[in-house]
């Protein structure tokens, strides 16, 4: 038996396909609305446990319910995504099972009670393969929504929840972006001197028909772009055909999110910036000169 944790969204196709390759059936525990539970039931899993509508409870309040379900199911592998609530619930399952928890999982196989996991370590600078005889909790990028397949039964279980409650919500009206699906992405870094200067990066992105992304400091701290637009070990992971890093130093915490890009272009004024060594095309120079020139060149027929 393997368990996938669903929290608030049915975008867990990668978890479903990963679980399907493993020995044993797949149980999905769903925290969130009935609509999510119903969608998961048609994603190819064998059984769904749903804890009822959350109402004003945050998804994290369901940690004991997930822990209880994990303890009862005695899974070999528990899979969860990278979003905040998914991490909290994966951690709760790992705690209940006293299971090791790993991130950046690249490959997992199971056979006769043994699980082999290959995963990146230390921000993805190396990979390790480990063997487990007991349960293990693995964090896997959720991916999109799985295609419709089968109809698993949904068991509605009343849940023990923690005493926490959402009392107010402020929406800053940003639409969620799917950077992972974009074929081209332009990433801006602190090489930009002012927020207004984002316009030259936006112009490049428009000419490339690319999504705009950034490094963490631009999203947290400077607040120039929303949090779901930063790339890296703790941000989004992308694998586009083209990634253009502009004024990005290329610390490994950032590169961890973009290493799977097919082609990387780096523009940086410091010839020693680590990003230049990780690029297919390296341009050492002032972004304020180079970016408008590239935009103009792209706009020429």
């Amino acid at each position: 038996m393997n368990l996938i944790i669903v929290a608030g969204t049915a975008s867990v196709a990668n978890l479903v396909t990963t679980a399907a390759q493993l020995d044993g059936e797949t149980l999905a525990v769903v925290v969130g609305s009935r609509a999510v539970a119903e969608r998961i039931a048609t994603s190819g899993v064998d059984k769904v446990i749903w804890f009822g509508e959350p109402g004003d409870r945050p998804l994290e309040a369901f940690a004991p319910a997930v822990a209880q379900a994990a303890t009862a199911a005695r899974p070999q592998v528990v899979l969860g995504g990278r979003r905040p609530a998914e991490r909290v619930l994966l951690g709760a399952a790992a705690a209940a099972l006293r299971a090791p928890a790993l991130i950046d999982v690249k490959e997992v196989t199971s056979q006769a009670g043994t699980v082999m996991v290959t995963h990146g370590v230390n921000g993805g600078i190396a990979v390790t393969t480990r063997e487990f005889s007991g349960p293990v909790a693995l964090m896997v990028d959720g991916g999109g929504v799985a295609p419709v397949q089968g109809a698993a039964p949904i068991e509605e279980t009343p849940a023990a929840t923690l005493p926490m409650q959402v009392t107010a919500v402020q929406v800053t009206a940003v639409t969620e972006v799917d950077l992972a699906a974009a074929p081209r992405v332009v990433g801006a870094g602190r090489g930009l001197r002012a927020r207004e200067d984002l316009s030259i990066i936006e112009a490049l992105a428009a000419a490339l028909e690319a999504e705009l992304a950034c490094t963490r400091p631009l999203a947290e701290g400077l607040d120039w772009l929303p949090r779901d637009r930063y790339l890296g070990v703790s941000g989004q992971h992308i694998a586009p055909r083209l990634y253009v890093a502009v004024g990005v130093s290329g610390q490994l915490q950032h590169l961890a999110g973009v290493r799977s890009a097919e082609t990387i272009v780096a523009i940086n004024s410091d010839p020693k910036a680590p990003v230049l060594a990780e690029a297919d095309y390296a341009l050492v120079g002032d972004l304020y000169e180079l970016v408008p020139a590239i935009t103009a060149a792209l706009e020429q027929p």
Binding site: A63, P84, R87, V88, A92, A95, I103, L162, M164
Partner: peptide, 16 residues
């Protein structure tokens, strides 16, 4: 970003 989640799970405390 997992240690806080597992600590909370072990103690039975809410985690945000």
């Amino acid at each position: 970003k997992l240690v806080p989640a597992v600590v909370g799970g072990l103690l039975g405390w809410p985690v945000l």
